[in-house]
Design a protein around this nucleic acid. Sequence first.
DNA 1: CGATTTCCATAACGGCTGGTATATAAGTGG
DNA 2: CCACTTATATACCAGCCGTTATGGAAATCG
Lengths: 206, 206
Amino acid sequence: MEIETATVATPHKGRPREFCVDMALAAALRVFWSKGYEGASMADLTEAMGITKPSLYAAFGNKEALFNKALDLYEREKADYMHAALDAPTARGVAERLMYGALDMYTCPENPNGCLGVITSVACGAEAECIRQAVLERGATAKRAMLERFARAKEEGDFPPDTDAEGLAAFLTAVNQGMSVQAGAGATRAELERLVETSLKLWPGR
Amino acid sequence: MEIETATVATPHKGRPREFCVDMALAAALRVFWSKGYEGASMADLTEAMGITKPSLYAAFGNKEALFNKALDLYEREKADYMHAALDAPTARGVAERLMYGALDMYTCPENPNGCLGVITSVACGAEAECIRQAVLERGATAKRAMLERFARAKEEGDFPPDTDAEGLAAFLTAVNQGMSVQAGAGATRAELERLVETSLKLWPGR
DNA sequence: CGATTTCCATAACGGCTGGTATATAAGTGG
DNA sequence: CCACTTATATACCAGCCGTTATGGAAATCG
């Protein structure tokens, strides 16, 4: 049982490390985010993180472990708008927050364009299959949460009673994924804004 | 000027090749389609095509040239539903044909899941950047055609006069791209059908 | 001051990548 | 039958991949 806090722990023995783990992880996330898991080589990663390969392996394990930690960071800091969106009082509010949140993230100048989940889950060689599965699993969890939220919305009367809540969840997910693809293809923020506004105009209710 | 037709030309000199170029190309397409450009190794390709590497290089040039020819084949045989869709008499007909055509292609058991264009354009290392650009260019051409079709539809009264035709084109594209992502993630045909039906229920007009 | 522990830097590992040189087999034209 | 042309098969290339062994540097503990 440790007494010192883990975050600011002073390692009392041995040579102290010369880089900040959090910043290095953030740099690694940027690389994975823009190049995908397989497209990001160890050379890319170490250069962006400003450390050497042995330091990386000592601090993070290996490439796969590094990616998983970067994915945790991504969900924690970048994709938390999803959780916030599901807390909206109405189904329309959920859709609005979700789409505008995605729009902001996909077009933020200091982020790579698009969604890390989409980028990583689309295609890969055999070696990255477990990575792909891990990402798909998180996506499935997110979709399940949205599904429950829309089922509740239907009970609360946000949708007409004959609405296919599952279809609407898949629909909202699809528009977001398409927005990510188009952002990665170089679409401007203005173009994606029109996509979001068009989608919200078609969204049922209110 | 050749008298003989190019397709069935009998090469009168040298040892005849022992494989069918078209079948080999079709096999290569399948590999690229399921693994992406970078995820498909030369070993994967030669094994699927049933030929050795020197034969591949002699017949197709190199990996990039092979991909471009596979992409041509893809557009010619697999993605021609897009052209057919744009010939529909109404904008709603365009949307219907496009979505059901995509649905059929993405879920056809003898095809890999998803859209080759989306798979290849999403993320890649630096070496595949020119491949990505080539794919993006074809996507841009397709989008331009859809845009013109919807501008015409607006003039013909398929949409209310205050409709954002460009937004609707981006919307339809996005739903298709999202459908491709979900197909690649393992969605069943039934799930994608509900996505299509939901999207068409939201589509304006008629 | 050693002794110990941890981290950094260099360099190397086996394996796989896309791409080829070389030699042989299988056809046709003379 | 022989020369020529083309395809196939084997083996190989340099270069990059993710990963790790080795040796020295920097801190704390006794």
